[in-house]
């Protein structure tokens, strides 16, 4: 399966995926991608592109080719199997009689 950024002959710098944490206690969230010659410059480019308006306190970059992703064509088998399995949600269950503090 091709990774994002692998295609295109004119592309010279590798593609990096950028994750930004907006404040302490939250997790890093995917913000977008960019090109950079190496990881050090990728962090700097990410700072320029994705934290211009005080968006972040921390930045992660991952080489796009190092990400293994699910197959977008295998949607059915991958993501539709939970359908009809309502018992996986807490809301499926009714409160039993005589149980206190629920």
């Amino acid at each position: 399966m091709p990774s994002p950024g692998d295609s295109g002959a004119r592309e010279q710098w590798p593609l990096w995926e950028v994750f930004v944490r907006s404040s302490r206690g939250l997790s890093h969230v995917h913000a977008g991608s960019l090109h950079a010659p190496d990881e050090t410059m990728a962090v700097r480019n990410a700072r320029d592109l994705y934290t211009r308006r005080n968006e972040g306190v921390s930045v992660w970059v991952v080489r796009a080719s190092d990400i293994t992703a699910s197959d977008p064509d295998a949607k059915g088998a991958f993501f539709e199997s939970p359908q009809g399995k309502d018992f996986r949600h807490a809301i499926y269950y009714t409160k039993s009689e005589g149980v206190a503090h629920l």
């Binding site: 010279q12 710098w13 960019l34 090109h35 950079a36 700097r44 480019n45 320029d48 592109l49």
Partner: peptide, 8 residues
Amino acid sequence: PELEEDIA
């Protein structure tokens, strides 16, 4: 030389 450097 690259979009990213342009912005930098």
